[in-house]
């Protein structure tokens, strides 16, 4: 295997407006390193519409179109169509959205673009709630989590929506999970997406210290623990049927290690940990069956 290099060039500047330890900001930095300057971004309402800076500033040195909350996928495919119609074929268009703009309000447009196999990359940086508007639950919020709309005495009582499975069901060329705690894997996936035609989606686990009530220095650690506890498996699916586990977790840590460092899970009791552990074990088993069956 060839040695992986992460491009040195910084296309995103440090003068952005993200909080300390924001994994959503870090993920963008990596993506732009791989995608380079021949890239255009469509960003809907989310933390990133603030992170990039107010008019007339921008933290990224590529064209960026701010668009409505539910339109990242279709604004990106409209951009792509417009470029191709003008004979510009070598510019990558990336839709970059939060979990709310993806799992919830923007879901219909994503399904449309995926079904048509529009030639764009869709990236969701998943901080598991609506952070821009002050930490409200989304359908990506995990079971048991506190948010301002799922208060501690009535936390979220439904599991996180399984986005990757739904996208796989669209039989798109490439859909994958990734994590800022595993940059080599993340970079490889961006490269693969860059070299694949059609609709690609990368679901990036992106800790948010502000919304998760956690010190910023634990951002990467929490992302790593999510993988090592099997809470967030790192895998990919090609054409909807070829499953591949990218990071195998042979000896998982108990979920408590991941949960206990975050204030959003502080209200949980031992029994709750057991329920969550059970859910995680079951989901992992299910995924392993797919990985073994559909190679």
């Amino acid at each position: 295997m060839s040695k992986l290099t992460i491009p040195k060039e910084e296309i995103m500047s440090s003068g952005h407006l993200a909080c300390q330890g924001c994994a959503g900001a870090l993920a963008m930095r990596y993506m732009l390193k791989v995608f380079g300057r021949k890239t255009m971004l469509a960003i809907p309402a989310c933390c990133w519409s603030v992170i990039d800076g107010p008019w007339p500033y921008s933290a990224v040195s590529v064209p960026l179109f701010h668009t409505a909350f539910e339109t990242a996928a279709i604004a990106a495919s409209g951009l792509k169509a417009g470029l191709v119609a003008q004979g510009i074929d070598d510019v990558n268009v990336v839709a970059w959205a939060g979990d709310g703009g993806t799992f919830d309000i923007g879901f219909q447009a994503i399904s449309g673009a995926a079904e048509r196999n529009d030639n764009i990359l869709y990236v969701v940086y998943d901080n598991e709630a609506y952070m821009n508007t002050g930490i409200q639950r989304s359908s990506a919020t995990p079971y048991g989590a506190w948010t301002t709309t799922t208060p501690a005495n009535h936390p979220k009582d439904r599991p996180k929506k399984d986005l990757v499975e739904i996208l796989a069901a669209h039989r798109i060329p490439f859909v994958a999970t990734a994590s800022v705690a595993y940059p080599e894997d993340l970079i490889k996936k961006f490269e693969k997406a860059k070299n694949t035609k059609g609709f690609k989606l990368i679901h990036i686990f992106a800790p948010c210290p502000t919304g998760w009530k956690m010190p910023p220095e634990l951002s990467i650690e929490s992302a790593r623990l999510a993988v090592q506890t099997r809470v967030f498996p790192i895998y990919e699916v090609e054409n909807g049927v070829h499953y591949k586990l990218n990071i195998n977790v042979k000896n998982p840590k108990p979920v408590g290690e991941y949960l206990k460092i975050q204030g959003r899970f502080r209200h949980l009791k031992e029994d709750d940990y057991k329920v969550i552990q059970g859910n995680v074990d079951r989901e992992w088993k299910l995924l392993m069956r797919k990985v073994e069956t559909f190679k």
Binding site: S49, P54, Y57, S58, F65, H66
Partner: peptide, 8 residues
């Protein structure tokens, strides 16, 4: 490269 429609 410019950003279009940013925060105002």
């Amino acid at each position: 490269p410019r950003s279009f429609g940013a925060l105002t």
